[in-house]
Design a protein around this nucleic acid. Structure first.
Lengths: 173, 173
DNA sequence: GAGAGATATTTAACATGTTAAGTGAATTCG
DNA sequence: CGAATTCACTTAACATGTTAAATATCTCTC
């Protein structure tokens, strides 16, 4: 495969065929966040996969490791998963005996979820590698810078969370 | 590598049932990035949805708007989609006549994709609202801070992209 | 110039994201 | 009390993420 593609006349600007006026696509905030996250997750996925876990399943186990038991709704908030996704994943994790479930006595609607012994053992296997990867990322990017980045991300989240959507604010005028 | 395991006994909160030593979950970088991105996308999704577009479909149209025609592989890179996803979405967009496809003459394997007239018109409808939302986000978060954030995200991506995975670097010892 | 390998794209299969609807249990209120 | 409402969770349906395999085409070598 020595052949070069002849074209690609300036990958940045392009001939602009039928240009609709917009920011350059690749520089949009959603894309920046998506690419950054993907770059990070690409580091973790192989290790997780080796242990038969997806990113989301790992999130759930981690969320469960810190507590005794939680209701599904609360877990969804912690692991940042939507109800339906969580519901499916819990079904699977339960079948694999990595978690346990029992309905709450005082409210039959609620289901209390907790990590099982097997789940704890699996975490003990995965955690060291996971932590090592995180440490390496921190080293490469810089610990201070990493903290700074996380603070900015938190602020961004904050300033968009409050009070209705941006969309509404715009519709007002 | 780092053998220093902070152990983190006081993990900030939670009764800590069977604690496996790890960073507090909610402060991990992947979670920060995920939440931030979701906060941003939550602003755009309603408007896109109103126009019958998903986030990814919109990405593709935007990527196509700036150029005359691209091959699928190049488009996948630009829109940051995996091949299989792109393949499905293009099938759909073509059926809706928002894009056009024709196989390249010099290489029958390649398929050249371009946005259609109808696609351009749809973009013209969506773009103003989309830009307004972006402007509002910029206003709330601060233009300078936004630029700074994007730079950091770019650097993060950069420092993780080069040469092999973090995993390999760790396995080395 | 036929076959081995490389390349572009698609299909397959499974897991999750996303919105809407369904189910059963608790709560409210007339 | 009992119908209406709310609540916690699940199912359904469709779109995408993700990896592996299949297809078709092209390129290169012998």
């Amino acid at each position: 495969m020595a052949k070069k593609k002849p074209a690609d006349p300036a990958n940045g600007s392009a001939p602009a065929a039928r240009q609709v006026p917009m920011r350059e696509f690749s520089r949009s905030l959603p894309m920046s966040l998506l690419r950054a996250r993907e770059a990070v997750m690409r580091q973790f996925r192989p290790s997780l996969r080796q242990n038969g876990l997806t990113e989301q399943q790992w999130r759930i186990l981690r969320a469960l490791a810190a507590i005794d038991a939680v209701e599904v709704t609360e877990l969804a908030r912690t692991a940042f998963l939507l109800g339906p996704s969580l519901s499916r994943i819990l079904r699977d994790l339960e079948a694999r005996h990595l978690i346990e479930r029992k309905t709450a006595k005082e409210d039959q609607r609620r289901s209390m979820v907790s990590i099982s012994e097997k789940g704890v053992k699996l975490m003990a296997v995965v955690a060291p590698t996971s932590e090592a990867i995180y440490a390496e990322i921190t080293r490469r990017f810089g610990a201070r810078k990493l903290t700074e980045l996380q603070e900015m991300l938190g602020e961004l989240e904050q300033c968009l969370s409050g009070l209705g959507s941006v969309d509404e604010a715009i519709a007002e005028e």
